[in-house]
Design a protein around this nucleic acid. Structure first.
Length: 355
DNA sequence: AACTCGGGGTC
DNA sequence: GACCCAGAGTT
């Protein structure tokens, strides 16, 4: 029997409280959230379309990266019908720069399904949302709680960290979800869920959590020490790539052109998206001439060194990779915003001042 | 529960 | 380079 005040005793009190919901904790958290929450565009609406879009964009993506895309995307596709009837290329173009492009394809598929099967109105509970493309356990619960007030808890990276610190000990993923549901304030589930995520994003941050500013410190067992399981080490690969930045001046009006190639529509990665002609081996010219610029580009576990060659460095040489040769299309710079381009292409075109 | 997917940051 | 981010889908 552990002594009163010991870790395990506190944990039992804080986490289970004899099966009762910890009302004082809920009050403290919601009071903090009401006063401190960030002013984000998707917190000004309960339109399921807008909430859904924000949740998909925010998957594995930081708030700061989403804000601008969210605004532009809604201008371009103001309703679920507009999104459902758009081409995949148009949707990918609006998504360009956010990464994980599969999300954008599933987003469009999901819109089409909701328009066709549900006459354009979202299913109103998490269970019915779950089968839709791109909607998993987290997103189904987020939409259902925020839009429809369903008392179902979410667990994202933030909530998981908050709960592991709050409760201490080692928890399985399943136990984390169970605790999240037990803590949930059933009268304000959407706000409570967002409050937990907000706490993780702004106070209970991964490194150096701001425990003195935390509304949950009274109930927290570890006081900021995260208990986590070791993740399997993924060894990063290094690769080199050569890109052709082949461009022509416009006739005074600034409407220049750049040569782009489209990735195969059935490619495993970034299918159908446009990019600069590239090769995995250096063309002959680059052995004598330095590239115009070098970039580093990391895609999850592969770190690329990107050598960018310009016009005269490219020439008509026989090059090791087909995609590098004089293929592709000349794309007007004013059209690029409407084209699904890869993140690396966007990065290079930006650095060159073309977009 | 453990992988795969394969973008973009920050520290 | 390590680590993280309002995960989803598959095995």
């Amino acid at each position: 029997m552990p002594a009163a005040g010991s870790i395990s005793e506190k944990r039992r009190m804080a986490a289970t409280s004899n099966g009762k919901t910890p009302a004082a904790f809920q009050r403290a958290l919601l009071r903090w959230y009401d006063a401190q929450r960030r002013d984000l565009p998707w917190r000004k609406t309960r339109d399921p379309y807008r909430i859904w879009l924000s949740e998909i964009m925010l998957q594995q993506t930081r708030v700061a990266a989403v804000l601008e895309h969210y605004r532009i995307f809604l201008e371009r596709f103001p309703s679920i019908e507009a999104l459902a009837s758009a081409s995949e290329a148009d949707v990918l173009a609006a998504w360009s720069g956010l990464g994980y492009y599969r999300r954008a394809r599933r987003l469009r598929q999901c819109a089409q399904q909701i328009v066709e099967q549900y006459k354009g109105s979202f299913p109103q509970n998490s269970e019915a949302l779950l089968p839709l493309p791109g909607i998993g356990r987290y997103t189904a619960a987020a939409i259902a709680s925020i839009v429809f007030g369903e008392p179902v808890a979410v667990v994202d990276g933030n909530v998981e960290r908050v709960l592991r610190r709050l409760i201490g000990g080692t928890l399985t993923t399943r136990q984390v979800w169970e605790h999240a549901q037990a803590f949930l304030d059933r009268s304000r589930p959407g706000d409570f869920n967002q409050a937990m995520m907000e706490l993780g994003a702004t106070v209970c941050v991964p490194r150096e959590p701001r425990c003195l500013a935390c509304p949950a410190r009274k109930w927290c067992v570890t006081r900021g020490v995260e208990v986590r399981r070791a993740k399997p080490a993924v060894h990063q690969q290094k690769k080199a790539v050569w890109c052709a930045l082949d461009w022509r001046e416009g006739n005074g009006g600034g409407n220049g052109k750049v040569r782009l190639v489209q990735r195969p529509r059935k490619a495993a990665l970034m299918a159908g998206m446009w990019e600069l002609p590239q090769s995995s081996a250096p063309p002959r010219t680059s052995r004598t001439a330095a590239p115009w610029r070098k970039f580093r580009h990391t895609i999850t576990v592969t770190s690329y060194t990107v050598h960018v060659l310009r016009n005269k460095q490219i020439g008509n040489l026989l090059l090791p990779d087909d995609r590098f040769a004089a293929k592709g299309k000349w794309i007007g710079l004013d059209r690029i915003q409407q084209l699904p381009i890869t993140g690396l292409t966007r990065k290079i075109l930006k650095a060159s001042g073309m977009i």
